[in-house]
Design a protein around this nucleic acid. Structure first.
Lengths: 243, 243
DNA sequence: TCATAGCAAGTGTGATCACAATTAAAATTA
DNA sequence: TAATTTTAATTGTGATCACACTTGCTATGA
């Protein structure tokens, strides 16, 4: 009988938006992902199921499943005590992560340089414009991380690889807790370098030049890592002289 | 008081092996992983929680957590019905997987070529020798897949990257259901090519030649993919002529 | 004969409970 | 006072149950 409704009087049913069937577990998982990529958790911080369940206003069940999912993709670490924590950050691990990101994201942007449609390039350019706009008007941080993520993933999504994309997401998840500090430090001083790298990337994409695109990307993602690694080593050296 | 036991009369406690504290969930997860990499599940096959729980003689709880873990690493696929299945295999997906594997495993073996110790190389050579030995004595298949996996991962483990290794494992998990058919077809006819590629890889490793190692690896892992892709296309063409 | 409604078996999800293991604090003893 | 034991609170794990949704079958209607 509902079918007759659509048939008789135009389709008023087309006004209705799909209601969506996301499970609680998916929402918890997504929320923890956002927090992790955004660097809301400190490295080495221990996460307990019940505390998270309280904070997210659910039972323990969806939380524990979300946690084990994050452990399998190495976004979190399972301790021998069976508790879960954000992986600690060491210079070696940061180098390791950077190498993997250069490898996979470099390949993705090289693919995107040859695959991207004009529409997709326009979307990326639009994000860049939003960024410039925001920088000019007010120097408030916060949106900056979000726009950076949107910029990169709009490109990676366009590379056409359903296998590469989740790998990259996993790497962002792993490096999130580390690089936030660096990104924040940059954005303090009206970060002109990041914008320059992003402009180079877009230029390479419109020129359909995979090599130039990859090169610009490597410069972009290397900077926060090397910055933070150097700072870590400086701190370690400082501690050594104290002892 | 136990401490006195070790202290007084030598350490009879050193005879005891660690009992291990693997959870049921971990065992279920490992079991499903083995089955997936080994190709025991068909592509597109639907997996139900209760059926698996019965088969593994546990309750549904560990199974559902293992399943969601496998879904997040794309080893399984979540359908809109909320049921879970082995991802179907298409030529596009196979090309996608092969590209990612060439990228990550190629990088891993190139790193291993410069990092590996003599001991680690000896272990790899030993696995190769076991393989030759097995091939000469009896032509029984089954061990073949297992040895192939051991050979590759002994190398990848030696590359020294804690980030790359899980990425590669995830890719094997995803390509497992696809390539089993191809590997099996090869091993039927006394597969001499795979052995040749593996020998080239070992030679490149002892020569500390990253480029040669990468090249041999690419040849090794490309073969089953191209073979199976061509067969899929042939089947598709056959169906077309029938219709 | 075909389509639709109703029924029943099967399935995933989330909540709750019992239990074992860990951790921290308090109480005891040397 | 310091080391050790005991106690209590916290935490993860696995089992079970209730509920909603899906799916396939049967029955009733046009």
């Amino acid at each position: 009988m509902l079918k007759s409704a659509t048939g008789k009087n135009g389709g008023f049913l087309s006004q209705l938006a799909p209601v969506g069937r996301e499970t609680v577990q998916d929402r918890v998982y997504g929320e923890l992902r956002r927090a992790l990529i955004g660097g809301l958790f400190e490295p080495s911080q221990v996460l307990t199921i019940r505390a998270l369940a309280d904070a997210l206003a659910t039972s323990t069940m969806p939380v524990r499943e979300a946690l084990s999912r994050l452990v399998t993709e190495k976004a979190l670490e399972a301790l021998p005590n069976r508790s879960v924590r954000v992986p600690p950050m060491t210079p070696e691990r940061m180098d390791d992560l950077l190498r993997a990101r250069i490898l996979t994201e470099g390949e993705a942007i090289a693919l995107a340089a040859t695959h991207m449609t004009a529409d997709q390039i326009a979307t990326v350019e639009d994000i860049l414009a939003q960024w410039d706009d925001m920088r000019e008007r007010d120097k408030v941080v916060g949106r900056e991380l979000e726009l950076n993520q949107a910029f990169h993933f709009e490109i990676y999504r366009a590379c056409g690889s359903a296998v590469l994309l989740p790998m990259i997401e996993s790497l962002w998840l792993q490096s999130g807790p580390c690089i936030r500090a660096a990104i924040y430090a940059f954005s303090q001083g009206d970060d002109i370098d990041t914008a320059q790298y992003h402009r180079s990337m877009v230029a390479a994409l419109v020129a359909r030049d995979p090599r130039a695109a990859r090169e610009a990307l490597v410069g972009d993602i290397s900077r926060p890592f090397t910055y933070l690694r150097d700072r870590l080593k400086a701190e370690a050296g400082l501690l050594e002289t104290e002892a």
